[in-house]
């Protein structure tokens, strides 16, 4: 595993810390500029989780909290894709953790009070590790949109939260996946905090009929990109010569 430093993060591509239309960011956004320094082992290394970490049903949210013989309610979908670095190099062994609301838009959480009912057979979380090509797949139910206290009538577009570990702590990323065609995408203050439309579109999963299973489930494709490591061409040549 390489300990080469990561390419500098393009912070203008990410949503700024202070995004006033997302009201909670107002009191939780640092006001000083972050300080940069040459990366050290503390940033270029990170925890590595083995392929034996996820259990056999960890990537199947339809069943991983369901009673024996039961299944979660909602539109059945496969979510799949690849994790690569910005260079296009696949990231094998990346741990992805996902969480989401149920098909009615309700999270299983003690502080969640939305009137949509809980599904006794749906927990709403799972995890998967990417294979040698950086590929992953999950099975779940399509989450519902839900209202949230921000403006007077804000609704989150349907989404799945993704937490991603690459090969170094400096790559650590949490993001959200959205669904192609959802009109709420363009009304969401959290999503619209991302400065460019091009960046927003990279978080929208596309319907993928080829990966769907007839008479069983639809499929959506969602690729994830992590920061790339710098190439150390000069040092390689020194060693080679």
């Amino acid at each position: 595993m390489s300990d080469a430093p990561f390419v500098a993060r393009d912070r203008a591509w990410h949503p700024p810390a202070l995004s006033p239309a997302y009201r909670t960011s107002v009191s939780r956004s640092p006001r000083h500029a972050p300080i940069s320094f040459p990366q050290t082992l503390s940033e270029t290394t990170g925890p590595v989780f083995g392929h034996d970490l996820p259990g056999p049903r960890d990537n199947d949210l339809i069943h991983n909290f369901a009673a024996p013989g039961a299944a979660a309610i909602g539109p059945r979908i496969i979510v799949h894709g690849r994790v690569t670095e910005e260079t296009g190099r696949p990231v094998p062994g990346a741990l992805l953790e996902v969480w989401q609301a149920n098909a009615g838009g309700r999270y299983r959480h003690r502080k969640e009070g939305y009137i949509a009912p809980l599904d006794p057979n749906f927990g709403g979380c799972g995890r998967v590790i990417t294979d040698a090509d950086g590929a992953y797949h999950l099975r779940t139910v399509q989450p519902g949109a839900y209202p949230w206290p921000n403006g007077g009538n804000d609704w989150r577009p349907a989404h799945i939260h993704f937490s991603v570990f690459g090969s170094g702590f400096g790559q650590r990323l949490i993001t959200q996946m959205y669904f192609e065609g959802d009109p709420l995408i363009w009304r969401c203050p959290i999503l619209q905090a991302i400065p460019s439309e091009a960046a927003v579109k990279t978080l929208i999963a596309t319907l993928d009929m080829r990966a769907s299973v007839p008479m069983d489930c639809l499929a959506y494709r969602f690729d994830i990109v992590l920061r790339g490591r710098r190439q150390t061409l000069f040092e390689n040549r020194m060693e080679g010569g």
């Binding site: 993060r9 393009d10 591509w13 990410h14 949503p15 997302y22 960011s25 259990g55 049903r57 960890d58 991983n64 909290f65 690569t84 670095e85 910005e86 260079t87 296009g88 953790e97 996902v98 969480w99 999270y107 299983r108 959480h109 003690r110 502080k111 969640e112 927990g123 709403g124 979380c125 939260h161 937490s163 991603v164 990323l173 949490i174 993001t175 959200q176 959290i190 999503l191 991302i194 960046a199 927003v200 990279t202 978080l203 994830i224 990109v225 992590l226 920061r227």
Partner: peptide, 27 residues
């Protein structure tokens, strides 16, 4: 490629990352 843009972990990050702490039970 560009790095996937970040989005907030939201109020329910514990469900996904600390499910036992969140009281989900589960596997």
């Amino acid at each position: 490629l560009k790095e996937s843009p970040s989005q907030t972990a939201g109020p329910y990050v514990h469900i996904g990352c600390l499910p036992n702490h969140a009281g989900l039970g589960g596997p």
